[in-house]
Write a protein that binds this DNA or RNA. Structure first.
Lengths: 345, 345
DNA sequence: TGTTAGCACTCAATTGGCGCGAGTGCTAAT
DNA sequence: ATTAGCACTCGCGCCAATTGAGTGCTAACA
């Protein structure tokens, strides 16, 4: 499967050209590039070879060639050149991310936005998923006549308004009791039996309407044990429409539908173990609808504490070099920041 | 500007037909509708009149007619029939909204999703904007070595991670002091002088590293006074692609760009005073890009406490009756729920 | 033996002519 | 006041002819 140097150069030239123009590339166009002084006839022979080897495809007899999935794969693995991101962009990015770190979810949201503006492709990102982190504090704060706010602090803050009647004093007592029982535990340590135990204990010690108590404990259980609802951020989906391969409106609509459906996207950004940047080209994608696209993604994670994924979706003829460079830069920045935040000492 | 009964019926029939088919409507098509037993020739005369009066437009000589903006406006004001939403849909909606009320922002998010699924047009919604509500509680909870979580409870919960070194005990003391000074106040009552006052006081009473203290107070000030970042929810933007008027991909891309740009959308859903459902048809829209669309919106609000807007965006030939009915239903449900929640007694 | 000029061939895309049909406005009859 | 009838308009789809980009193959060349 290895190619001699000339074939590699020709394949690279073809793919570079095709990435730029989206038009099938002819032998004449390549022979004009002076860096390899070969006639179009020679190129034609080589192209025929490359086609036979599976790296190129000829849409029809009198057209030029376009890369096959295998061609792109070879390009990504061994041909593409390095892309240098401008220093101004780099420092802009650093500033932007550093001023936005006050909430981790926001960090990823901005990182995804930056990835999409650097590359001008669509991006999908999942906020870091907390795995079973420790409960630091539980609080109940009345906010209006019939409403009390339940607040659970782990590494994040989750809150939930509960529509029920309870007076301020009872709130305070109940919070204290809940903190005594639950803070320091991890979500996995809490099961329904534990909640019922607390319920019985509370009924003895405090005089709270049992119905109200059950309500609150029920919500508490939900809030603590619920998998953090994975927030998904999509940027620049519309960029899909810019590529000639999606002038076909129905195809475009299908992809846009896909990019609006959080359920699919969750699967898409489910983190597998892999580290580093990974590309899925065309048919390599698990989702049929993406089989004319490429998806380049990077996992960011910190041990078993939090993890997530940031993915760029574009046409197969995307500017891989630029996308790889951008994701590399961004994921390094994220890891730096997460590293500092997540450090429990 | 008033039309006789026959003209009204004809105009209504034309617009109804056009809304369904998106094709220019000819006289023959109308004359076939049995409810007015008129020949196509008669219809033709009436159509010529309606065109002269500005309600209809003839794209070219040998085509039928399509409604003008004025035609749609007349239709919306006085012609369109009532639309009945099925009972199952209504009760589904009620269930969905009622189980989702735990956070107000979520309520609107779901309401917008429902509006979009009922009508199958794009929707834009802004979460209710709190106006200057009372601070109920402030808390500082350490969550990792270098990080403390600042939590401010008003009618909502705002939280923010602060990357600074402070021990648990100091946290607790500082929280107590902050609550003593600030809870019960409204955001507008807090200015920078007040914060500085607290800073001086704290420096005397507590032994906290001044740099850390300044950091925390600074973030607190930001968090309390910052306008709640208006969350904007967009649903079903892709539906734009379904309408023949947007088969032109560039036009579609422009609209989708618009619907991805939060800044524009904020302006779009800025609440003006008006109550009830409002339609902006074609050129009536302030944004040039929407001049081939209609936007039907409803404000929900509760006195001066919170307000927001939910808007449906579709082609000018949208099913106004259905959209009006859906928004009416949804806004009633929202008002009911908000009314209960916001009740301070 | 590898390279290249030349040529015949293929096929998508463009162009222009033609006819169809939906729809109109006008006129004259009812 | 309504309508049947007719001439006219004009967008659209169809078809054939033309164009041109690109190929594969062959024979000549270094």
């Amino acid at each position: 499967m290895d190619l001699n140097d000339r074939k590699r150069k020709i394949l690279q030239a073809i793919i570079d050209e095709y990435i730029g123009t989206a038009e099938p590339v002819g032998s004449r166009a390549i022979s004009k590039k002076e860096n390899l002084g070969l006639s179009s006839a020679t190129i034609r022979n080589e192209m025929a070879d490359l086609e036979e080897m599976g790296y190129l495809i000829q849409p029809h007899t009198s057209a030029g060639r376009i890369p096959s999935d295998a061609g792109y794969r070879f390009y990504v693995n061994s041909l593409m050149s390095n892309y240098k991101i401008g220093m101004e962009a780099v420092s802009q990015l650093r500033n932007l991310l550093e001023t936005r770190v006050s909430q981790l979810e926001k960090l990823i949201k901005y990182a995804a936005a930056i990835a999409s503006s650097l590359t001008d492709y669509a991006t999908v990102a999942a906020a870091p998923k907390e795995n079973n982190s420790e409960i630091r504090k539980i609080d109940l704060v009345p906010v209006s006549n019939h409403t009390v706010m339940l607040i659970v602090v782990t590494r994040n803050v989750r809150s939930r308004a509960i529509n029920t009647d309870i007076d301020g004093e009872s709130c305070e007592k109940l919070s204290k009791l809940l903190n005594a029982r639950l803070s320091g535990l991890k979500a996995d340590d809490i099961d329904f039996a534990k909640i019922q135990e607390i319920q019985r204990e509370t009924e003895n010690k405090l005089s709270i309407n049992p119905k109200v108590l059950i309500d609150i404990l029920h919500f508490l259980y939900d809030t603590v044990t619920a998998d953090a609802e994975t927030e998904i951020y999509v940027n620049n989906a519309k960029s899909i429409l810019r590529y000639p391969e999606y002038k076909n409106v129905e195809k475009a609509e299908k992809i846009l539908s896909f990019l609006e459906d959080k359920e699919n996207l969750k699967k898409l950004v489910e983190t597998d173990g892999k580290d580093g940047i990974e590309a899925k080209i065309g048919k390599e994608n698990d989702f049929e609808i993406l089989q004319d696209c490429s998806l380049v993604s990077v996992n960011y994670s910190l041990g078993d504490k939090a993890s997530g994924k940031l993915a760029v979706i574009g046409p197969k003829r995307m500017n891989y070099a630029k996308v790889f460079a951008s994701l590399d830069l961004i994921s390094n920045e994220i890891d730096k920041i997460l590293g500092y935040y997540m450090n429990d000492g």
